[in-house]
């Protein structure tokens, strides 16, 4: 009985821990600059967005600034990377494997920011360059100049891309693909999904348990009428007098293979192997 109580307590603890935090919404990317916290005016957002769009299309590298109201359930170390993947960011030419971009992610509520680069941009935005970008925006943010921070970041990215001779290409990744669920959902969303599926786990567990208990209860009886006599076969007692495998006819069906014509653009002229997709700064900062 002590074991039963322990298991009930454990199950209750798991449920409580997953119910504790309220899930938050995340929106797919529709622009280069997004402000979910309402820190910038709509005119400022529009102005920054057109600047970032012009640079991104010219450089073939997405340059993004996203200001969120909270961390979306991410830890500080995974905040910028999580936002990049969940907002489906990156410039590409029809092949999402080739997404390339650099992001400044700012959590207004936590007063935390970090930058990250992905895809072909990873070669240009090394940790050193990302640290330089972080240093640049810190002064603006410290002084409460959110617009200045975003604009400075975007323009500096343009300079770095130009100076480094950045070329867009589709990298080949050597690490296993990132878990698609992790890529497309935030921790809060994953908690929501987890909770919605938990009742099904309960039903399946109950059904399996019923089956197992029933099988165990069958141990209490082992009587039954015998239906075969394998144990009493005489050694070499099976004698085949006739074995015929008579061919009757053959039917043939043909199915046309549907081939996807593809249509994706060229993936670029150069290839480089990336272990994963990201390059990160040496660490985000509080301001």
């Amino acid at each position: 009985m002590r074991l039963t109580k322990l298991l009930i307590a454990l199950a209750a603890a798991v449920l409580a821990s997953v119910l504790f935090l309220k899930p938050a919404d995340i929106h797919a990317a529709t622009a280069y600059v997004m402000d979910e916290s309402g820190t910038l005016t709509s005119e400022q957002v529009a102005s920054l967005n057109s600047l970032a769009e012009e640079i991104s299309l010219r450089q073939k590298c997405g340059v993004y600034v996203i200001i969120t109201s909270d961390m979306h359930g991410y830890s500080e170390s995974s905040f910028a990377r999580g936002i990049f993947m969940n907002y489906d960011l990156g410039y590409d030419e029809g092949n999402r494997d080739g997404a390339s971009g650099v992001l400044l992610a700012i959590s207004e509520g936590d007063r935390y920011y970090d930058s990250v680069a992905y895809g072909a941009a990873k070669d240009t935005f090394s940790s050193y360059n990302l640290d330089r970008l972080n240093d640049l925006v810190l002064d603006y943010l410290y002084n409460g100049d959110w617009y200045g921070a975003a604009e400075g970041f975007i323009r500096k990215c343009d300079d770095i891309l130009t100076d480094s001779g950045y070329q867009y290409y589709v990298p080949t990744y050597t690490d296993p693909a990132i878990n698609p669920t992790t890529v497309t959902t935030s921790p809060a969303q994953r908690r929501e999904i987890f909770l919605s599926r938990l009742p099904f786990v309960g039903v399946i567990a109950a059904l399996l348990s019923l089956l197992i208990t029933w099988v165990v209860s069958l141990q209490n009886t082992n009587i039954g009428i015998a239906t075969e006599a394998m144990k009493y076969l005489v050694k070499n007692g099976v004698k085949l007098t006739s074995t015929q495998d008579i061919f009757i006819n053959k039917t043939r069906t043909t199915t046309r293979i549907h081939r996807d014509s593809g249509g994706g653009g060229s993936s670029g002229s150069s290839h480089s192997y990336h272990s994963s997709g990201f390059s990160s700064s040496s660490g985000g900062r509080h301001f």
Partner: peptide
């Protein structure tokens, strides 16, 4: 098997005959 742009499925039909004796002892 694949033939050009087609998947070809061939199904051969047979009639199987098995005759024989099976001996038991001490059932």
């Amino acid at each position: 098997y694949t033939h050009g742009d087609n998947i070809v499925t061939e199904t051969s039909h047979y009639q199987i005959v098995r005759r024989g004796t099976v001996a038991f002892s001490g059932v």
